[in-house]
Protein backbone atom coordinates (compact mmCIF):
# COMPACT_ATOMS: atom_id res chain seq x y z
CA UNK A 1 0.00 0.00 0.00
CA UNK A 2 1.45 3.38 -1.06
CA UNK A 3 1.44 6.21 1.50
CA UNK A 4 -0.83 9.12 0.47
CA UNK A 5 1.34 12.07 -0.58
CA UNK A 6 -0.02 15.12 -2.39
CA UNK A 7 2.10 16.09 -5.42
CA UNK A 8 1.46 19.62 -6.71
CA UNK A 9 3.17 18.94 -10.07
CA UNK A 10 1.02 15.90 -10.83
CA UNK A 11 -2.18 17.45 -9.48
CA UNK A 12 -2.92 19.77 -12.46
CA UNK A 13 -5.64 18.05 -14.55
CA UNK A 14 -3.59 17.70 -17.77
CA UNK A 15 -0.53 16.34 -15.98
CA UNK A 16 -2.68 14.02 -13.87
CA UNK A 17 -4.15 12.57 -17.07
CA UNK A 18 -0.69 12.17 -18.63
CA UNK A 19 0.57 10.32 -15.54
CA UNK A 20 -2.57 8.16 -15.49
CA UNK A 21 -2.00 7.17 -19.12
CA UNK A 22 1.69 6.45 -18.52
CA UNK A 23 0.88 4.38 -15.44
CA UNK A 24 -1.01 1.90 -17.65
CA UNK A 25 1.91 1.22 -20.04
CA UNK A 26 5.69 1.17 -20.32
CA UNK A 27 5.69 4.00 -22.85
CA UNK A 28 3.06 6.15 -24.57
CA UNK A 29 3.70 8.10 -27.76
CA UNK A 30 3.53 11.91 -27.42
CA UNK A 31 0.65 12.35 -29.90
CA UNK A 32 -1.42 9.61 -28.25
CA UNK A 33 -1.06 11.29 -24.84
CA UNK A 34 -1.74 14.72 -26.38
CA UNK A 35 -4.94 13.49 -28.08
CA UNK A 36 -5.93 11.69 -24.90
CA UNK A 37 -5.97 14.91 -22.90
CA UNK A 38 -7.21 17.02 -25.83
CA UNK A 39 -4.62 19.81 -25.87
CA UNK A 40 -2.32 21.42 -28.46
CA UNK A 41 1.30 20.37 -29.04
CA UNK A 42 2.62 23.42 -27.16
CA UNK A 43 0.41 22.90 -24.09
CA UNK A 44 1.33 19.22 -24.07
CA UNK A 45 5.04 20.10 -24.33
CA UNK A 46 4.73 22.43 -21.32
CA UNK A 47 3.08 19.71 -19.24
CA UNK A 48 5.74 17.19 -20.27
CA UNK A 49 8.53 19.65 -19.50
CA UNK A 50 7.19 20.26 -16.00
CA UNK A 51 6.86 16.55 -15.36
CA UNK A 52 10.35 15.97 -16.74
CA UNK A 53 11.85 18.73 -14.57
CA UNK A 54 10.19 17.18 -11.51
CA UNK A 55 11.85 13.87 -12.43
CA UNK A 56 8.50 12.12 -12.96
CA UNK A 57 8.70 11.54 -16.70
CA UNK A 58 11.45 10.68 -19.17
CA UNK A 59 11.48 11.11 -22.94
CA UNK A 60 12.86 8.88 -25.68
CA UNK A 61 13.07 9.86 -29.32
CA UNK A 62 12.95 7.10 -31.92
CA UNK A 63 12.63 7.01 -35.68
CA UNK A 64 10.29 4.51 -37.31
CA UNK A 65 9.40 4.35 -41.01
CA UNK A 66 11.19 7.67 -41.58
CA UNK A 67 9.27 9.48 -38.85
CA UNK A 68 10.69 10.82 -35.60
CA UNK A 69 8.45 10.03 -32.64
CA UNK A 70 8.71 10.92 -28.98
CA UNK A 71 7.86 8.31 -26.38
CA UNK A 72 7.03 9.20 -22.79
CA UNK A 73 7.37 7.00 -19.74
CA UNK A 74 7.13 7.38 -15.98
CA UNK A 75 10.38 7.13 -14.05
CA UNK A 76 10.46 4.88 -10.97
CA UNK A 77 10.12 8.01 -8.83
CA UNK A 78 7.26 9.22 -11.04
CA UNK A 79 5.42 5.93 -10.61
CA UNK A 80 5.78 6.18 -6.82
CA UNK A 81 4.74 9.85 -6.79
CA UNK A 82 1.69 9.09 -8.95
CA UNK A 83 0.69 6.15 -6.74
CA UNK A 84 1.10 8.36 -3.65
CA UNK A 85 -0.98 11.11 -5.24
CA UNK A 86 -3.76 8.67 -6.19
CA UNK A 87 -3.72 7.37 -2.61
CA UNK A 88 -4.08 10.94 -1.36
CA UNK A 89 -6.98 11.67 -3.74
CA UNK A 90 -8.62 8.44 -2.59
CA UNK A 91 -8.15 9.49 1.04
CA UNK A 92 -9.66 12.92 0.34
CA UNK A 93 -12.57 11.37 -1.57
CA UNK A 94 -13.13 9.08 1.40
CA UNK A 95 -13.29 12.10 3.72
CA UNK A 96 -15.99 13.59 1.49
CA UNK A 97 -17.83 10.27 1.48
CA UNK A 98 -17.41 9.88 -2.29
CA UNK A 99 -17.21 6.34 -3.63
CA UNK A 100 -15.32 6.00 -6.94
Amino acid sequence: MTAPVFDAVIHAPGRLQICAMLSAADEVEFSVARDGIGVSDSVMSKHVKQLEEAGHVKLRKAAFAGRQRTWLSLTAGGRNAFAGHVAELTRLAGLAGISV
Binding site: P13, Q17, A20, V86, L89, T90, L92, A96, I98, V100
Partner: peptide, 9 residues
Protein backbone atom coordinates in the same frame (compact mmCIF):
# COMPACT_ATOMS: atom_id res chain seq x y z
CA UNK B 1 -11.03 14.36 -5.63
CA UNK B 2 -13.83 12.11 -6.83
CA UNK B 3 -13.87 13.80 -10.25
CA UNK B 4 -10.08 13.53 -10.50
CA UNK B 5 -10.12 9.83 -9.63
CA UNK B 6 -12.78 9.30 -12.31
CA UNK B 7 -10.52 11.15 -14.78
CA UNK B 8 -7.58 8.91 -13.85
CA UNK B 9 -9.74 5.85 -14.52
Amino acid sequence: SGAMLAEIK
